[in-house]
Amino acid sequence: MLRYVLGRLAQSLVALLLLLLIIFAMTRLTGDPTDLYLPLSASEAERAAFAEAQGFNDPLIVQFGRYVGEIAQGSFGESLFKARPALDVALEAFPVTLKLAAFTMAIAMACAVVLGSLAAYWPNSLFDRVVSVLTIVIASTPTFWVAIVAIVIFSISFQWLPTSGTGSAVHWILPVGVLVLTPLGLLTQVVRASMVGCLRSAYVKTAMAKGAASRRIIFVHALRNAVLPLITVAGVQATGLINGAVVIETIFGFPGIGKLMIDSIRNRDFALTVACITLAAVVVYLMNMLIDIVYSRLDPRVRIK
């Protein structure tokens, strides 16, 4: 296990270095780096002095080494827009995104288990067909379009729900409700497909022959083995929620890492942008490793060395 964890950390470190290289290259290929830091109204003298102070006149390899070294020490620089250390600003916003993703996945998994299991227990029934059609539709519908329609209906037309903020539980309804649709649709299909095979297995037929209750057959005997594919897909969806929260947080004015990233790009705050991207990447790498470890513990056929 220790060897596996160290190996995954080494792979994640390589991927993180490549990500930092891409960010570094993009800022250089798009023009003078001082354009990312200074306002458009800055004079040539101010630009030259800033470039010299920041080392932008040094060779690119020297700049990249200094750039990675500072990040390795946890120093992403000063946020120009917030006038504070960029990492501190990103760390304050990230828990909001994590809560949003956690609430979304908890609701999606709970509903998917119930809907997918019942649809598999009554295959080809009206309930199964309705669930299949609805889950395919909601999983295929763009979340940004659903978010806009939800705002028009529930916030503008009926004025039931607020459009932005996190002041109370009511403020979370629209963002979570919109963000839950895609994972709910995908996870329901995964649970149904896995449960269909499990319900046809010999041990389930034995439980039926012994007179076990339908609820126990579905949610104890069959679900125990059907849950493994669910965990794998749920892990992928959870990491996708962290990356995909940018759109939803921006639309609903949700003060998470996604909206902060967009604001930092809009305000030409390069240090804060790098801090947000790096923090999100690190969390995604750690979540992927945790998913593999959990899967190996649940499935005795999988061994991590």
Results as ranks from 00 to 15, higher is better:
Val220Thr: 13
Phe270Met: 14
Leu38Met: 10
Lys205Glu: 15
Asp35Arg: 12
Ser264His: 04
Met261Phe: 11
Val302Glu: 10
Ala212His: 14
Asp32Leu: 05
Pro300Met: 00
Lys82Val: 09
Cys111Val: 15
Ser296Gly: 00
Tyr37Gln: 07
Arg215Ser: 13
Thr250Val: 03
Arg66Asn: 14
Arg268Gln: 08
Ala119Asp: 02
Ile257Arg: 09
Leu174Asn: 02
Ala45Gly: 02
Leu60Trp: 13
Ser41Asp: 15
His171Thr: 03
Trp122Met: 02
Thr104Asn: 09
Asn243Tyr: 08
Arg200Tyr: 04
Val190Ser: 04
Thr104Ala: 01
Glu249Phe: 10
Gly235Tyr: 10
Val62His: 10
Ser12Ala: 15
Val62Arg: 11
Ser155Asn: 12
Val191His: 05
Val294Leu: 15
Ala212Arg: 15
Ser140Met: 07
Val146Ile: 14
Ile156Tyr: 11
Ile242Ser: 11
Arg192Cys: 07
Phe252Arg: 01
Arg216Asp: 14
Ala280Ser: 15
Pro123Val: 02
Trp122Ala: 10
Gly211Lys: 12
Ala212Met: 13
Tyr4Cys: 03
Val204Pro: 13
Ala209Gln: 13
Ala169Val: 13
Leu21Asp: 04
Thr141Gly: 04
Leu174Asp: 03
Ile173Gln: 06
Arg301Gln: 10
Ala106Arg: 03
Cys198Thr: 13
Ser157Leu: 09
Leu60Gly: 06
Thr166Cys: 08
Val233Tyr: 02
Glu249Arg: 11
Leu286Asp: 00
Gln73Pro: 07
Leu298Arg: 09
Asp263Glu: 15
Val294Ala: 14
Gly258Met: 01
Pro229Trp: 04
Glu46Asn: 02
Leu179Gln: 01
Asp299Phe: 06
Glu46Gly: 09
Phe103Trp: 14
Ile231Gly: 00
Pro162Phe: 01
Leu9Arg: 08
Pro59Ile: 00
Met105Gln: 10
Asn267Ile: 02
Thr239Val: 14
Pro255Gln: 03
Asn288Leu: 04
Phe127His: 08
Glu78Ala: 05
Ala213Glu: 12
Thr206Gly: 01
Ile173Phe: 09
Thr97Gly: 12
Thr143Asp: 12
Ile291Trp: 06
Val133Trp: 07
Ala112Tyr: 12
Leu38Ala: 03
Ile153Leu: 14
Thr232Pro: 12
Met287Leu: 15
Leu18Gln: 04
Glu92His: 03
Leu19Arg: 07
Thr278Val: 15
Met105Asn: 08
Ala275Cys: 07
Ala280Gly: 13
Pro123Ile: 02
Ser75Thr: 10
Val220Tyr: 07
Ser132Asp: 12
Asp292Gly: 04
Gln159Cys: 00
Arg268Glu: 00
Glu52Thr: 11
Val204Asn: 09
Phe81Ala: 13
Gly244Tyr: 01
Gly211Pro: 11
Val246Ala: 03
Asp269Gln: 11
Glu70Tyr: 02
Ile148Glu: 06
Thr34His: 05
Thr250Leu: 00
Arg84His: 06
Val227Trp: 04
Phe64Asn: 07
Leu21Cys: 09
Ala25Gly: 07
Phe24His: 04
